[in-house]
């Protein structure tokens, strides 16, 4: 069953002294409940725009977005957006614990003690036990992204919308976060939509990879990875199927520059 549907979504931005530029052209995709879907595309193809529209943070110029069957206008409670710029999405004046509590403290019946207990549990889930009293700037980039992840998980969303969440950390930290991501996804039955320009990341984590064209962007094709579950984010990279997919997708991105296949 589809939990998130984009139907003929268009987005154009006003241009100075000219007609508006079309950034997204009749893009349709349907995300199944519980799947891990990556959206892969060259830089500047509007991947973030797509994700922000899905999250209700940006209004499309045309088309419809539905979450759990309901049309989206404004951020739906089922979905949480995880930003690429983790450093800018955390509140610098709050401790790590209070940053995570931010996700739930405004909910009815939530006391301060309760929201902090929720925060501590989520921090444990992302491997940050004992860092609750630190401030975000005292942590490394990878750890800050874990805090952002803990905050998103604290909201108990059905859908996690992740905008290049691992692109600003070093390669080793990235692999570490990939493992964590797979673990959390398997445990919690999440639906994940991950936007990335990293082919290996997309293939290693996903059930399906959707390839985006250059602007005006639309879905060029959707590939089922068919890789086994549960899988290890590192070991999967050594399987023939992974290499085959990587080759295929890179080929498309490089030779056709991502134009509609």
């Amino acid at each position: 069953m589809a939990i998130l549907e984009l139907e003929a979504v268009e987005k154009s931005f006003p241009a100075r002294g000219g007609p508006p530029t079309l950034a997204m052209d009749k893009l349709s995709i349907s995300v199944r409940e519980g799947e891990f879907l990556s959206i892969l595309g060259p830089s500047g193809c509007g991947k973030s725009t797509l994700l922000q529209i899905a999250a209700g943070l940006m209004e499309p110029s045309g088309g419809t977005v539905r979450v759990a069957g309901r049309p989206v206008n404004g951020p739906p409670p089922e979905a949480v957006y995880v930003f690429q710029q983790y450093g800018r999405s955390l509140l610098p004046w709050r401790s790590v614990r209070d940053n995570v509590a931010f996700a739930v403290e405004h909910r009815p019946g939530m006391s301060r003690a309760k929201s902090r207990a929720v925060a501590d549990a989520q921090l444990e889930a992302v491997g940050l036990t004992g860092f609750g009293d630190h401030y975000p700037w005292q942590l490394s980039g990878g750890m800050q992204q874990r805090v952002a992840l803990a905050r998103a998980l604290a909201a108990e969303p059905k859908i996690l919308l992740m905008d290049e969440p691992f692109s600003a950390v070093d390669a080793l930290t990235r692999l570490d976060l990939h493992r964590l991501m797979l673990e959390l996804w398997e445990k919690r039955g999440l639906t994940v939509v991950l936007v990335t320009h990293d082919v290996e990341e997309a293939v290693a984590l996903s059930d399906r990879v959707a390839l985006l064209t250059k602007r005006p962007s639309t879905i060029a094709r959707v590939v089922e990875t068919g890789l086994p579950r549960p899988r290890d984010a590192v070991e999967v990279r050594e399987t023939p199927r992974f290499l085959e997919l990587r080759h295929e997708l890179l080929e498309v991105l490089l030779t056709r520059g991502g134009h509609a296949a």
Partner: peptide
Amino acid sequence: VDRVLLDSARTHGWGTARALWYVVLPA
């Protein structure tokens, strides 16, 4: 105030009044 910070508040379901008090003013 950083757009990303405001969008973080929105995606977590914070209304305008709460966002003003707990995000915009401290920032």
